[in-house]
Amino acid sequence: MRALGLAEAPREHPLRYPGAWPRESGLLDGDRLLPLDRLVHEDRVPLLAVGSNASPGQLRHKMDQSGISSPIPMVRARVTGVGVGVSAHVSRMGYVSASPVEAPGTVRELFVIWLDAEQLAVIDASEGVPLPGGNYDRAWLPSPDVRIELPDGTALPGAYAYVNRHGVLHDGTRAPRGHPGQRPLLTGLLLCSRSLRELFGVSAEQFSARARADPALCARGTAVFAEERLVTASGLERYVRPRRTESPGAGPALPPPLT
């Protein structure tokens, strides 16, 4: 991955969030990105990645922390109906992350990662799904509301995505704003909010460093987004199922097997 420029994890380099994405589909296997032998994996569940979960370096970092070394198929897909918005929370990793938003008619290239149960539990935990105060819920986005077309023309019946419980930031017209990359995003947020400057400093570097050092400060920054009325709905909240408590990390029930 290092030779391909895909080894860095945004968790270690927050101003480079969402990290480098592959140009093509591949099988993430340790430090290597290998060719795929198939695009659909019926024994796994598909997860639509709109931020750093499409970064091989980030995925490897998350799995390494849990001692998981099994490969992860990553498939580049043509997705209609989903845009990449800005999470309305400040991450303790030192960045403001991406969140999916409803975007009827919008077409863009995103990655579907195919996860087994163990891998899914790791990603769920990294997004706070099992926690009452976590930042995301995992929701099933069905076709035809969201169309996910693989490189061979196969259309999936749907995929999971992580919907932010805090909502997303808007662009001033109540429409979700797009995520321009971490440095320009933080620079713009600081420029427009005195409260954020008082908390996080005047530069993207200061923002990131202070956020990484102080979880309570991140929570206060998240509150500022709401207090300054910078937040709107993603439009995907209707797909979130009621939370269950029977087992940690379980999240919503899995969909029927893919056919």
Score class of each variant (00 low, 15 high):
Ala3Ser: 13
Leu6Glu: 07
Leu6Trp: 04
Glu8Leu: 14
Pro10Gly: 08
Glu12Gln: 14
Tyr17Gln: 09
Ala20Trp: 06
Trp21Gln: 15
Pro22Met: 06
Arg23Asn: 12
Leu27His: 10
Leu28Arg: 13
Asp31Gly: 11
Leu34Asn: 09
Pro35Gly: 06
Leu39Asn: 09
Leu39His: 07
Asp43Cys: 07
Val50Trp: 01
Gly51Asn: 04
Gly57Tyr: 08
Leu59Phe: 00
Leu59His: 00
His61Arg: 12
Lys62Gln: 11
Met63Pro: 04
Asp64Arg: 15
Gln65Pro: 00
Gly67Trp: 02
Pro71Leu: 08
Ile72Asp: 02
Ile72Asn: 00
Ile72Tyr: 02
Met74Gly: 00
Val79Gln: 03
Gly81Pro: 02
Val82Trp: 05
Val84Glu: 03
Val86Ile: 15
His89Gln: 12
Met93Leu: 13
Met93Lys: 12
Met93Trp: 12
Gly94Cys: 10
Ser97Pro: 03
Ala98Met: 13
Ala98Leu: 03
Pro100Gly: 04
Val101Tyr: 02
Thr106Lys: 14
Val107Asn: 04
Val107Phe: 05
Phe111Asp: 02
Leu115Thr: 01
Ala117Phe: 01
Ala117His: 11
Glu118Val: 15
Gln119Met: 09
Leu120Ala: 14
Leu120Tyr: 05
Val122Ala: 09
Asp124Tyr: 10
Ser126Tyr: 07
Gly128Arg: 05
Gly128Tyr: 05
Gly128Trp: 00
Gly134Lys: 03
Asn135Val: 07
Ala139Leu: 03
Ala139His: 09
Trp140His: 01
Ser143Leu: 00
Pro144Cys: 06
Asp145Asn: 01
Val146Thr: 04
Val146Glu: 01
Arg147Ser: 13
Glu149Trp: 02
Pro151Val: 03
Gly153Ser: 05
Ala155Leu: 14
Tyr162Ser: 08
Val163Ile: 15
Asn164Trp: 00
Arg165Phe: 00
Arg165Pro: 08
His166Ile: 00
Val168Asn: 04
Leu169Met: 08
Asp171Met: 03
Asp171Glu: 10
Gly172Lys: 02
Gly172Glu: 02
Arg174His: 13
Ala175Ser: 14
Pro180Gln: 09
Arg183Gly: 06
Pro184Met: 13
Leu185Gln: 05
Leu186Gly: 09
Leu189Gln: 08
Leu190Cys: 02
Arg197Met: 06
Leu199Glu: 04
Phe200Pro: 00
Gly201Ala: 10
Ala204Pro: 08
Gln206Leu: 10
Ser208Gln: 03
Ala209Leu: 13
Ala209Arg: 14
Arg212Ile: 03
Arg212Phe: 06
Ala213Thr: 05
Asp214Leu: 06
Pro215Ile: 05
Leu217Thr: 03
Cys218Lys: 05
Ala223Ser: 12
Val224Asp: 06
Phe225Gln: 06
Phe225Lys: 07
Arg229Glu: 15
Ala233Glu: 15
Tyr239Trp: 15
Val240Met: 10
Arg241Glu: 15
Pro242Val: 11
Arg243Met: 04
Arg244Met: 11
Ala250His: 14
Gly251Ala: 04
Pro252Gly: 13
Ala253Gln: 13
Ala253Pro: 10
Leu258Thr: 12
Leu258Tyr: 07
Thr259Gly: 15
